[in-house]
Design a protein around this nucleic acid. Sequence first.
DNA 1: TAGATTGTTAATCGATTAACAATC
DNA 2: TAGATTGTTAATCGATTAACAATC
Lengths: 223, 223
Amino acid sequence: LEVNVENSSSAKSGDSAPIPEPTLRRLPVYHQYLKNLGPTKYSAISCTQIAQDLRLTPIQVRKDLACTGIVGKPKTGYDVGALLGSIEDFLGWNNPNEALLFGAGHLGMALLMYEGFRNYGLDIVAAVDPDHQKQGSAPNDKKILPLEKAAGLIRRMHLKLAVLAVPEAAAQKTADLCAACGIKAIWNFAPVKISVPPDVIVQHENLASSLAVLSKKIGRTAA
Amino acid sequence: LEVNVENSSSAKSGDSAPIPEPTLRRLPVYHQYLKNLGPTKYSAISCTQIAQDLRLTPIQVRKDLACTGIVGKPKTGYDVGALLGSIEDFLGWNNPNEALLFGAGHLGMALLMYEGFRNYGLDIVAAVDPDHQKQGSAPNDKKILPLEKAAGLIRRMHLKLAVLAVPEAAAQKTADLCAACGIKAIWNFAPVKISVPPDVIVQHENLASSLAVLSKKIGRTAA
DNA sequence: TAGATTGTTAATCGATTAACAATC
DNA sequence: TAGATTGTTAATCGATTAACAATC
């Protein structure tokens, strides 16, 4: 990718090395593992133990955890509570991003109803859907509004993040609307690649890609 | 020493070099892109064009496509129809894996109702759910059966693949059931790591990991 | 042919793994 | 202290990118 706009170069100064994406993906796994350890009689855990339980190498665990800024004690390991907090802080889970959800079909409702997201740094404030029958309130009291309310809501709440759970045919149109309203990041569950302005981030959740990996894994053992 | 000059047009999985996972993840993206090209007047496309539209490098596209066994024509590119077929063959999309879905909540229903999976090599034959109110037939006529029917169904239909869309608390128990019935691969949407016997493959769909990546991308530009 | 594009081999880059020093 | 574990620097490995030959 070419370097084009230089006006935001103020934030460029290398305050910290960029975190490898594989590390970012593992951090929530560590967190979930640590949370489920339950009340053990030890308050500390070694990366050898973590690695063994998660089928990773101790060195990798150590490097990953170091990214969050945690400091362990030789011979003891890491304080479990401090480690949980360090991961949460690092991933910004204590300051969730507010987001608007587009689409209240089955997938949209699953995303809207899942309360766990708030623990993972995401707060879906409402959903919009063009289908009048779907409008109203979800069982968890979150509002499902007409699509026309989206622009006003985004501007009024200064929303920067949108979650797309719309049909393939509506995805690009929805992305255009988001960009026009000032949305800066889109979490896209629609099974299609969307085009956005260069200052908008897109994270594409591609189940077909996951299936491809899974299928090949199956083929490798079965064949 | 390089061997395997065996030029088999139909790429069989299992033998030869393992395909890099990033390549596997991109292949469905190429397919989706090619499918949406629509009826152009040209039947061939170059990897330069593909790369430009998908924001990749031409060399990477060429390498990825080569994995499927497709052969292009210098100066012309790849025949679009042949390329689509080559990707489909390589990923096994013409012989879908039959799967049983566990859980008919919002997410489960989204997965059960999504007809596109059959094009991606997955055929969800039915769902099971312990909730009597959910049992019956989905709008697309797929059956939602009592949980107790799972074992019999798996054995009778020789199912090898299970899709888990159950609550966190039920995930491990469900995985145990699957393993006991002879399931060989689990696509896990529950937000928890599950333990399975060594001969069972697990693909974990971890939204928290995706969110972590997305949050950091946002933070990098916004901060 | 000339030129564009593919296919392949080599170089680079980044993530993982190894080696080892620091430390409680 | 002795020993286990962390933290850091070096080596390895795999994926991406570059260079270039083959070919239509």
